[in-house]
């Protein structure tokens, strides 16, 4: 894995190399380099299996991290290629021509994160959700609990007490219980 990464580093501009396990490493790559790198990994290095493609929302940094996880099933090792995408212009080149299954992942990302993949087949169709009008739900700024409470009525009659506050109230009723 180490040698592979050092080889890759001579060809591509990789940063943030993390060796998570003996057989799993993560590298970060620029947008321009992604496609050549994936092609290289697929055709030259034996990482023929697209394990998954997903995103992580680093909302604090205003970044979407795309993770392309490739697997070399013969050697039993994986490499995660990470790509940082600005959150406000969330659009990325599609790789469905490299792996047809990527189209499904890209549809999901489009729907769940609002990351666009122009050219990807059926990317604008509803995938999992139907008639969704709110923020893409996997974005960190979408609050599922709030949405749930606003949309779907809870059964009434639930109430709970905080043991500490209740004890203070009960055992020291005269005290100022604001705190």
């Amino acid at each position: 894995m180490q040698t592979l990464i050092s080889q890759l580093q001579t060809r591509f501009q990789l940063s943030e190399f993390i060796l998570q396990r003996d057989n799993l490493a993560f590298v970060t790559v620029t947008r321009e380099q992604l496609r050549p790198l994936l092609l290289h990994l697929r055709d030259k290095e034996g990482f023929t299996h697209l394990v998954l493609l997903t995103a992580v929302d680093w909302i604090e940094d205003n970044i979407f991290q795309l993770t392309y996880l490739l697997g070399d099933r013969t050697a039993g090792c994986d490499i995660g290629v990470r790509l940082m995408l600005p959150r406000d212009v969330a659009s990325m080149d599609s790789i469905h021509d490299l792996w047809p299954t990527a189209a499904t992942y890209q549809r999901e990302l489009r729907e769940m994160f609002g990351i666009d993949f122009p050219e990807s087949p059926r990317v604008d169709e509803d995938f999992i959700l139907e008639g969704w009008t709110d923020l893409p739900p996997y974005r960190r700024d979408f609050d599922t609990l709030k949405y749930s409470q606003e949309s779907y009525v809870d059964r009434l009659g639930r109430e709970t007490k905080d043991p500490a506050a209740y004890m203070k109230l009960k055992l020291y009723p005269d005290e100022d219980n604001d705190g």
């Binding site: 998570q20 992580v56 996880l69 995660g80």
Partner: peptide, 9 residues
């Protein structure tokens, strides 16, 4: 859990 990422299969 400290920052990190992994894939388990």
């Amino acid at each position: 859990i400290p920052r990190g990422e992994t894939y388990i299969r």
